[in-house]
Design a protein around this nucleic acid. Structure first.
Lengths: 115, 115
DNA sequence: CTTAATACATAATAAAATTATGTATAATAT
DNA sequence: ATATTATACATAATTTTATTATGTATTAAG
């Protein structure tokens, strides 16, 4: 289980992608989801996650709604209207960057499966 | 032409990969090669490149040989014996990391072309 | 009744980049 | 001739972003 390493700089777009898909997510849920989709290989640390969430909120990309589950706060993050717009270009950006890495490191032959 | 952004953390393995392929390279040549293979999209900055080269040298991965082209120094970097060993695992590592990014960001359908 | 899981958060530190600056030679364009 | 661009190295200040270490607190499981 490695944490970020190469994933430096990818946490914000990753958050955006997950929230875009799920509609809304809370911090802990994001850590679990990433653990799941990475086959237990990636552990997002709180020290990276929460500052990133707060920054995205400050940037106006995310908005929050708090819910109280019993006596415990659960802070859901959602895409704002701005965030919904921004998400498209930000995900396109990261997609291009990752494909660039594939190209640079010559991880071809990777091709689009057009099935 | 974007500089690093997502490439954070990838400069050292990239240097290793290029030098492994080319045999030896000097700093400026690396910037040009990266520009070339990225279709002019990536400009490695000196502030990132030279410290990375020096660190790899300190780590014993790279060794240098200086050549004087006229009155101008050209410092070639080569893989040391240690570096040749390390290169294999380091490149496997970065490969896995990039494929992890592909998986996380759902850049499938990307499949191996087995032709 | 203790430990692990859930759930938030911040502070100190480290790593790694950007940006700015510096020196200097060689080639090209005006 | 001379100014600009390209070649070629390098470092310093700053910023960004992560790691590691704490901290608080509730709930579930052993």
């Amino acid at each position: 289980m490695f944490s970020q390493e190469i994933l430096k700089g990818t946490i914000k777009p990753l958050i955006i992608k997950l929230i875009k898909e799920e509609g809304r997510m809370y911090g802990y849920q994001i850590t679990q989801k990433v653990k799941e989709i990475s086959s237990e290989k990636i552990a997002i640390t709180e020290g990276a996650l929460y500052p990133a969430l707060h920054k995205l909120e400050d940037e106006g990309i995310l908005v929050t709604e708090s819910e109280w589950i019993g006596n415990r706060e659960r802070k859901y993050y959602l895409l704002s209207d701005l965030g919904k717009e921004a998400a498209v270009s930000k995900l396109e950006e990261i997609r291009e960057s990752i494909l660039m890495l594939v190209q640079l490191f010559d991880l071809k032959p990777l091709v689009y499966d057009t099935k």
